[in-house]
């Protein structure tokens, strides 16, 4: 009994050690290749970190990160909200699903670039167009995932809810959404990864700030150190969101499940 938690902690530490070692190896390989190549096309990690520190203190790094994060947040929230609503509706109403499935397939297979360009053409080079373009790229994805979840809803619990005359809101909150939670978590996770990749393209094409804009500027100057610095900074932020926001949310959503050993 007393050994249980200690074993878990030891396992956790050894797993963390492996991860750290793996990352260190990658950094070392980067350093070695940079030294051998000795080219401005691949600066060593030290130079990149120095740029990041300098740019964070005196430059535009934080402002650009902030602009991009705001776009990610709004587009992500919009895509999750609309995608979940559509997915649940399609999963519950077969007629609706049959009617709109071709639209979904079409949207799923439209390249992100096309959606972005069309949004900019139709709405102008505006913030709305940028956020909408990112959301539109993500919505069909969320819809498809949530549709699967809605199809798998338990008819038994549904009947229970009907027998006890639960209100629409109570049904949604206590019966439907908890069943969809794994699907929502999956959509959120894959969604965030997709959104933050697309947002950079959207910024590159039509925004005057943000990480995507900065990368396009430094690309034109052929400043690889800056390009890598911005990418690394952004990746760190996204990893922080993953570990500090998404994973605690999932742990909370799983709290009622029997602990698997």
């Amino acid at each position: 009994m007393g050994g249980g938690p200690r074993i878990v902690t030891r396992e956790l530490w050894s797993r963390l050690a492996v991860k750290a070692l793996s990352l260190a190896t990658l950094g070392l390989a980067w350093q070695v290749v940079a030294m051998v190549a000795h080219s401005p096309a691949l600066p060593p990690p030290g130079a990149v970190f120095a740029f990041m520190a300098h740019e964070a203190v005196g430059g535009e790094l934080l402002a650009n990160l902030g602009a991009t994060l705001a776009r990610v947040a709004v587009a992500f929230a919009l895509a999750m909200l609309v995608g979940c609503a559509l997915g649940i509706a399609f999963g519950r109403r077969a007629a609706l699903d049959r009617a709109f499935d071709p639209w979904l397939v079409l949207l799923l297979n439209t390249p992100a670039l096309v959606v972005t360009v069309l949004c900019y053409i139709w709405l102008g080079l505006t913030e709305t167009a940028a956020v909408l373009a990112v959301a539109l790229n993500k919505i069909p994805n969320v819809t498809v995932l949530l549709r699967e979840g809605a199809r798998a809803l338990s008819p038994e619990l549904d009947e229970m809810a009907a027998a006890y005359r639960l209100s629409f809101v109570d049904r949604l909150r206590h019966v439907v959404l908890p069943q969809l939670e794994p699907y929502v978590a999956g959509a959120a996770r894959s969604g965030l990864a997709l959104v933050w990749k697309i947002v950079l393209v959207v910024e590159l094409l039509g925004r005057p700030n943000g990480v995507g804009y900065a990368i396009s500027v430094y690309f034109q100057l052929f400043d690889v150190t800056a390009v890598l610095g911005y990418s690394l900074a952004f990746m760190v932020v996204m990893l922080a969101v993953e570990y500090l926001v998404l994973q605690p949310f999932e742990a909370h959503a799983r709290r009622w499940r029997p602990t698997a050993r």
Partner: peptide, 27 residues
Amino acid sequence: AGLAIGLVFQEPRLLPWRTVEENIRLT
């Protein structure tokens, strides 16, 4: 629809993500 009914199904049909007390309160 206008009748207050308490229904016990063949299986308990409790919400696994709510505690015993929350399961009862909700109805």
